[in-house]
Write a protein that binds this DNA or RNA. Structure first.
Lengths: 338, 338
DNA sequence: GGCCGAAGCGTTAACGATATCACAAAGGCT
DNA sequence: AGCCTTTGTGATATCGTTAACGCTTCGGCC
């Protein structure tokens, strides 16, 4: 037998109270006696009543959603950020509405449009590069906008991130200090991953600043670059410029792939060639040898974004005052591959 | 200057049509002339109008959400499943509402309650073990329920999964065929990860069936077991039972950790000890040596779940007819570590 | 010319919760 | 006793969209 879905009205009727009292019994509203509240909750449970958030959303003009777009769900760095963000927001009773752009700006634009229709309280996007229409939609939205994992030149709203280019200066300096001069870079061969492209640009600038040749660039295919692409890119690097002393990879995953290729070929790391990555993925600290990397503190990015959002939502006046730029300190973790 | 949020009414007024015509212009409703539709869309864009899904959700009693719970967002296996699921659903205009339980059944129960309040069209949960209250909520919900990554003895609704225990029979048989008899298992030391616990049970049963001792069980801590825990567990295994010929790890991540520990100690793999994992993570195919593993086809699970959902939603009568159990074939991928 | 069906659009009434106001009853104070 | 709070509850309007239904208009056809 198929009962129809229960509403507050059903609960109210059964309990012999008004709908409004049932509503109050379901919130932390003090103006219901504890006895009534308990009784109503029990009756609701018996009836199998489930609170309908869609109706409350419309009436209160609040959804308790925070929309988030990331390039890929299958990336430990972004996963960590979302995890931390979502943990903190959950404490405040908010939920994350997540969408993946697949490193595609056109897709990101669509996602942003869809997400905004759901009336989130705030929106968090990855990176500072977006289509014109996406920028416009975000600007016009009357909610806090937070760009992360980047330090955009012209931010849309708030920012919680770091300069991807700057991390590469740190890495090149580290390698130069180790006496390396012939240094290569392995990364995506398109700009689909804008943060990866920023790191490539940062690498080139850092090499120039050190007076070194910056032409050893290996394109590893369309982003995202993963372990396998890292391995085959390392193969091409060793074939093309056998005298390379160090290689910086766009992420730890490609760095690990590169490392395995060296192991397969019997090339000693770091003796013959040093390898560095980015992201402080778990594998960098576990592989043998361990991989030198940059830790961009992904969880911190998520946690800070969450704090910022909660702060802005608590005091909406603050939002209008000034866009906040929160810079996250990254850290170079020297390890066995350099 | 702060304009107030625009509604269909504003668009209608500006366009000189009724609200209903605006509504129709925003759907694939034929009963609006193409000229009017285009004009209305343009006016809406000019005004900065954004369609309000919360109102539509209430009125139509449709949210176009599919709720999904997974143990952790930071796990490539579940990420693949969600990715495939979400891709297919997106084609049908549906969105995934994702939540992570942190391998905690009490947390999962809370999540399910919160998710159901949002009135999803269907709900996908990971595994077949849930708290009593969670089971009850799912059973009472009038939407399709799909359990994945498992083959529960008493399914709540539909199932898209495989027997975790059976995969371990396959793995033990593989090792026995390679002449191994002293075989150990590395996994979590609690049952927080129910699928991991199923694999441990499957391992024990398979060893018995082969007439082998099944006492070499290494507890690697509280799930999820990652690379680092795998490495330290391998250390304990080598210290406790140095004559072990093979070890089955609860996942490729712990298997890789175990492999690195062997490399650090100078223990030859597979010469002195064979290592096997589970999950067909990318690292299993890239590490040196490559790791023998089980491929449970995570993307296929997601894709099949999506198809099932779309099928059920298209023909609601079907849902009442019979619960579908879709078994996914897993595959043993023999590699260099065995 | 008259009839008919379809296309295009408008009017009205929901959808299920909550903000707001109103108000009765119960205390607390002088 | 009289007045003022405080507390608990109810009635009503409302959030923005859409389903259902009804009214025109218009072209085609006999």
């Amino acid at each position: 037998m198929q009962h129809s879905a229960k509403t507050m009205k059903d609960v109210a009727r059964t309990a012999g109270v008004s709908v409004m009292t049932v509503s109050r019994a379901f919130k932390s509203d003090t103006s219901v006696s504890e006895a009534t509240r308990v009784r109503i909750r029990e009756i609701a449970d018996d009836l199998g009543y489930v609170f309908d958030a869609t109706a409350a959303n419309l009436r209160t003009q609040k959804t308790n959603f925070v929309a988030v777009t990331i390039p890929s769900i299958n990336n430990a760095n972004f996963a960590d950020t979302v995890d931390a963000l979502s943990d903190r927001l959950a404490e405040a009773g908010m939920q994350v509405l997540l969408a993946y752009s697949g490193y595609d700006m056109a897709k990101e634009e669509q996602l942003i449009e869809q997400l905004l229709r759901r009336r989130p309280e705030a929106i968090v996007v990855t990176g500072g590069s977006h289509s014109d229409r996406a920028r416009k939609m975000l600007t016009n939205s009357r909610i806090p906008v937070i760009e992360t994992w980047d330090l955009p030149a012209a931010p849309i709203g708030h920012v919680v991130g770091f300069s991807n280019a700057a991390t590469m200066h740190g890495m090149v300096d580290h390698l130069v200090a180790k006496g390396k001069t012939r240094i290569a870079f392995i990364g995506g061969d398109t700009d689909g991953d804008t943060r990866g492209a920023d790191r490539r640009r940062g690498f080139i600038a850092a090499m120039r600043r050190n007076g070194l040749a910056e032409d050893r660039l290996i394109g590893a295919g369309k982003p995202p670059i993963s372990m396998r692409e890292g391995a085959s890119a390392m193969g091409r690097l060793l074939d093309t410029w056998p005298d390379t002393q160090a290689v910086v990879c766009v992420s730890d995953l490609s760095a690990f792939g590169a490392l395995t290729e060296c192991q397969r070929r019997g090339v000693n790391v770091p003796g013959e060639i040093a390898i560095a990555g980015f992201g402080a993925y778990e594998i960098a600290g576990v592989s043998h040898p361990t991989i030198t990397t940059i830790d961009p503190h992904p969880r911190l990015i998520g946690a800070q974004a969450a704090e910022l959002i909660l702060d802005l939502l608590n005091d909406p006046a603050k939002e209008k005052r000034k866009a906040r730029i929160i810079e996250i300190d990254w850290q170079l973790r020297a390890a066995e591959t350099t």
